[in-house]
Design a protein around this nucleic acid. Structure first.
Length: 979
DNA sequence: ATCCTCCCCTAC
DNA sequence: TAAGGTAGGGGAGGAT
């Protein structure tokens, strides 16, 4: 993989950086390279000849890429820093290797840079024909494809000291095991320099996650927990277990040992097993070449270094070892170590480290087999990770009586070995802690049973650092308390620390835990009921942004991924935490590890969401909001994470049925629209899908059939205007509370309207609030007619909420609205109320404009625009004090950008979008920002002038007319001058 | 005294 | 080059 941008830059446009540039390394230059696009934004627009044209520059060009970038910006075109199959229309290059051509779409044109400069000279867009480099690109593709499809097979790369004759059969067999389609893809990406380097690249997140070992570990751990959990519900599986146990019982030949073993089941003796694959990644990668296992092996992304002529100027690789085998460990090599370091250790022993690539497909396969074998004997399993679990063997051993546990375990391990070609180790003991430590003792490829009577002896000699949950930090704390004595084993702790001492050094819980652990005590039982407590995404690699815009774009991707995870887990959360890592003041800008985060200062911030959510936009907006509260320089950002906590399952509970049933989570009293009498409680419940009890203790997760207990309101709580949190209500002094309730029942604005109408108003509010919170997934499943009804109602609602009475004059409820509300038989209504997923969502985040480019149901809608006079509805809504916004944009510039993107991206606007935009302009007028309205309309007209989009122009004119009408109403007949 | 937020630590 | 993710437990210290 060639270094991106290596040959792209001349000195052009960079004189301002002068000596700075000269002083820094190429990697640093790349960052400023990205920055160029920002500078370009401030460039003067000279023409629009490249309108609708976007380019990607590859390789060395004249003028260089930076200059081309600038030129494109000045003349209305778009420059992409990365090649994207979806976006780039012209590939600019003066010398493009064939290897890259195959990456292009058939219609992509490879054009010489001169096309750009000539076009500018003549001030018009010239035909590309004379500048195209590979005119027959489409034709030659078939051929190219054939030539390039077979990618260079992955081979084991020996670092430092190369394996002699590395091209021989030995390697071919390895190729076989590792040249999955995935590795082929990766290889394909690597052989040109278009791959995703940092988080600015649109594909970065995807490629990163695909390759990240840590992501693999955490995601598979969760997957296995879920898998075991699900299997427990399956009746068929219990039958399988019975069958398998039967077979086992019949097939074993008992030895003397078996008859000697007695499990004292009267004393309720327990027997736990911990089982773990040995150096999982390496074992899998070599499962077809076990003979390799004698030499030191590691799994790395880096291929190590091929050339081994001398030891001088060896490149020190910062690629981390995902896993290394025991042969490597004997030299002090450890998982997570930099490859460079590991190579050094090997070199010290005149050994060579064999670096093998990741084989994620194989990991999955082996992991699945490993689990399925064990699960075919028992479901008393707690999944720890893809290659590790705890098993409560008590019941199984009683069943297999008088079989010795270790006899069973050897049979089991044998089966695993045969089936996966990978070794594993197991530990047995009377509790989970000892079982786990026994495994460590057993490794590699062994088993160990700490029998009664040997437990104290065993635990005494265990190292503190080997206890689960004890890391270097805690060890340090312990050692610092008695500098003169070495504290290494459990025995040391037993002798030197009283319970009180431990608690004072480490805190109550940790102190107690360590006190117990060092004595071999552990009262835990298998965690059988898995439900996640948080779902999150963290990226601390490749984070390099120059502008907030770039960051925002990445956050959108993060939010999208997080939403996906929430939905897959069928969870919604009520709390969102953003965590950032910012380069420490003294840390170098260019990190030691390529694209790493270096030394950082970390901080986090959380917000309590208004309701349980898995909504992309809410996540995105709340994240950005929190980020804006945190002080940091964007270019110093090195890591970012979003965590959703306070989870609630969205699937059916014990009382309800799912979507296709009749009752759902949503189908609770609090979501029913009351018929006649309404209390303030009912209104509160719309906003707060919680049980009323204030006494239950957090955490809330135990019972998913009940909702969350209200938490105290804090400064972070966010409520939309017009909504009152019940907790606030409860805490108000009685007097004020009464007043507020009174106000809710009889808002001043409804004076003179009879009481029945109040109730309708409130009912209407409830219903429309519910409607606001529907998401497109639910809407999509409705029949078109219903959908339309709802969409119209949503629009009404939207408009209603945005139009406080003008000039003190109240308008009467429009008929549309009340019929809709009163029509309890209405299909749409019923379906809505039975919808499973819907929870109230803060209104501010339901802006459908977000869907401009991800068109969902809205563009299918055949919605008739609603005449202005029908839109004015009676409302109790409080006046919104916030600055009007659309799709999260408030500043003139942002809205302009969005407007431009909107116009450019479609041949004709869809009605909903137009309405939303119109509403937004009205909002601006209402907040006396006619100037902005004026500017936006002018800008829109200007954009349309350069295009020939008739439908657009017509629609935009209609919009302008409406705005003018509104403007006249407000400003005594004056008209905006848009000429 | 108890809760909450913002960390830190650990594990795979 | 390189792919330093995530879930969960728990402590410090401020807020209530």
């Amino acid at each position: 993989m060639a270094g991106r941008g290596c040959g792209q830059r001349g000195d052009n446009g960079w004189s301002e950086w002068g000596g700075y540039m000269a002083a820094k390394k190429r990697k640093l230059e790349e960052q400023f390279d990205k920055d160029c696009s920002n500078n370009a934004k401030q460039l003067e627009r000279k023409s629009n000849i490249f309108h609708g044209i976007s380019i990607f520059v590859d390789g060395h060009t004249e003028p260089p890429a930076d200059e081309l970038k600038k030129l494109m910006m000045e003349h209305g075109g778009v420059y992409h820093a990365y090649y994207s199959k979806d976006k780039v229309t012209y590939f600019i290059s003066n010398n493009l290797p064939y290897a890259k051509i195959r990456k292009l779409k058939p219609n992509d044109k490879v054009v010489r840079s001169q096309w750009i400069t000539d076009s500018i000279k003549q001030n018009k867009l010239l035909p590309t024909y004379d500048y195209e480099m590979y005119k027959d690109i489409t034709k030659s593709r078939g051929q190219t494809e054939l030539n390039f499809k077979r990618t260079e097979p992955m081979r084991p790369i020996t670092s430092d000291f190369n394996v002699p004759n590395s091209d021989e059969e030995e390697n071919n067999s390895i190729e076989k095991s590792s040249s999955s389609s995935e590795t082929e893809d990766i290889q394909a990406e690597e052989d040109d320099h278009l791959s995703a380097l940092d988080a600015k690249h649109p594909k970065f997140l995807e490629t990163f996650l695909k390759r990240s070992r840590l992501h693999y570990l955490s995601s598979t751990a969760v997957a296995k927990k879920v898998y075991v959990q699900d299997l427990r519900q399956k009746l068929e599986h219990r039958q399988l277990i019975e069958k398998r146990r039967e077979e086992l019982k019949n097939n074993i030949q008992r030895s003397e040992r078996d008859y000697l073993f007695k499990l004292n089941d009267e004393k309720k003796d327990k027997i736990y097993m911990h089982i773990d694959m040995d150096c999982f990644f390496v074992s899998v990668a070599t499962r077809n070449q076990p003979e390799l296992r004698d030499q030191p092996i590691a799994i790395t992304h880096s291929k190590g270094k091929k050339s081994t002529t001398t030891n001088e100027h060896q490149f020190y690789s910062r690629s981390e070892l995902a896993s290394c085998n025991y042969a490597a460990r004997q030299y002090g090599i450890k998982n997570g170590m930099y490859l460079g370091k590991a190579q050094e250790l090997c070199r010290n022993h005149q050994a060579k480290l064999l670096c093998l690539p990741y084989d994620y497909e194989g990991f999955h396969e082996v992991s699945d087999r490993f689990y399925d074998i064990i699960l075919s004997y028992t479901l008393d399993v707690e999944a720890v990770s893809c290659d590790e679990m705890y098993i409560d063997l008590t019941e199984l051993i009683l069943y297999l009586k008088p079989l010795h546990p270790l006899t069973f375990v050897s049979l089991l391990r044998e089966e695993i070995q045969l089936n996966t070609k990978c070794p594993c180790s197991a530990g047995l003991a009377s509790n989970m802690l000892l079982a786990r430590l026994a495994t460590r003792q057993a490794k590699p490829n062994g088993q160990c049973y700490i029998e009664k009577g040997y437990e104290q002896e065993f635990i005494s000699k265990q190292k503190i650092i080997d206890l689960p949950g004890i890391g270097s930090s805690i060890l340090d704390k312990l050692q610092q308390t008695s500098l003169h004595k070495s504290i290494e084993t459990c025995k040391h702790v037993q002798n030197l620390f009283s319970l009180e001492k431990l608690k004072s050094v480490l805190g109550t819980k940790q102190g107690q835990t360590i006190y117990d652990m060092t004595r071999g005590n552990d009262i835990r039982t298998l965690a059988k009921d898995y439900s996640p407590k948080s779902i999150s995404i963290d990226i601390n690699y490749g984070i390099r942004f120059q502008t907030f815009d770039e960051l925002n774009l990445f956050i959108k991707q993060l939010a999208t991924e997080l939403q996906k995870r929430l939905q897959q887990a069928k969870q919604k959360g009520k709390q969102l935490t953003v965590k950032i890592r910012v380069r420490s003041v003294n840390a170098p800008i260019v990190t030691e590890k390529f694209m790493g985060c270096g030394k950082t200062d970390d901080s986090s911030r959380l917000v309590n969401l208004h309701s349980f959510t898995d909504d992309l936009t809410i996540i995105e907006l709340e994240t950005i909001k929190l980020l804006k509260q945190m002080n940091f320089v964007v270019s110093d950002l090195r890591g970012i994470g979003i965590t959703i906590t306070q989870l609630q399952s969205t699937i059916k509970n014990s009382h309800g049925k799912d979507m296709h049933g009749t009752r759902t989570l949503f189908d609770c009293n609090q979501f029913r629209v009351p018929k006649l009498t309404i209390t303030t409680d009912d209104i509160q419940n719309i906003d707060e899908p919680s049980e009323s009890s204030v006494t239950r203790k957090r955490p809330i997760q135990q019972d998913q059939t009940t909702s969350v207990v209200p938490k105290k309101l804090t400064r972070h709580d966010c409520y939309t205007p017009g909504q009152i949190d019940p907790r606030v209500m409860n805490e108000l002094p009685a007097e004020i509370r009464q007043e507020v309730e009174e106000h809710l029942k009889n808002p001043p604005t409804t004076l003179g309207i009879n009481s029945e109408l109040h109730q309708i108003n409130i009912a209407e509010k409830s219903f429309t609030q519910v409607m606001d919170h529907l998401d497109e997934a639910v809407l999509n499943e409705l029949p078109p007619e219903m959908r339309r009804e709802i969409t119209i109602a949503q629009k009404l609602r939207k408009i209603e909420s945005k139009y406080p009475p003008v000039g003190g004059k109240r308008l009467v409820s429009a008929p549309v609205s009340s019929t809709l509300i009163n029509k309890e038989k209405s299909n749409a209504f019923n379906v809505l109320m039975n919808s499973p997923q819907k929870q109230p969502i803060p209104k501010k985040t339901t802006n459908p404009i977000k869907k401009w480019h991800t068109e969902t149901i809205l563009n299918e809608e055949n919605t008739v625009p609603i005449p202005l006079n029908e839109k004015k509805l009676n409302t109790n809504q409080q006046q919104q004090q916030q600055q009007p916004s659309i799709a999260g944009c408030t500043s003139l510039n942002d809205v302009k950008l969005m407007l431009r993107e909107w116009i450019e991206s479609s041949d004709e606007p869809n009605q909903i979008d137009l309405d939303l935009f119109q509403n937004y302009l009205f909002d601006l007028l209402n907040s006396y920002n006619a100037e902005m309205v004026h500017q936006l309309l002018i800008y829109g007209l200007l954009q349309l002038k350069t295009l020939t989009k008739t439908i657009w122009t017509d629609n935009f004119q209609i919009l302008i007319d409406s705005v003018q009408t509104r403007f006249r109403q407000m400003y005594g007949g004056a008209t905006m001058d848009l000429s």
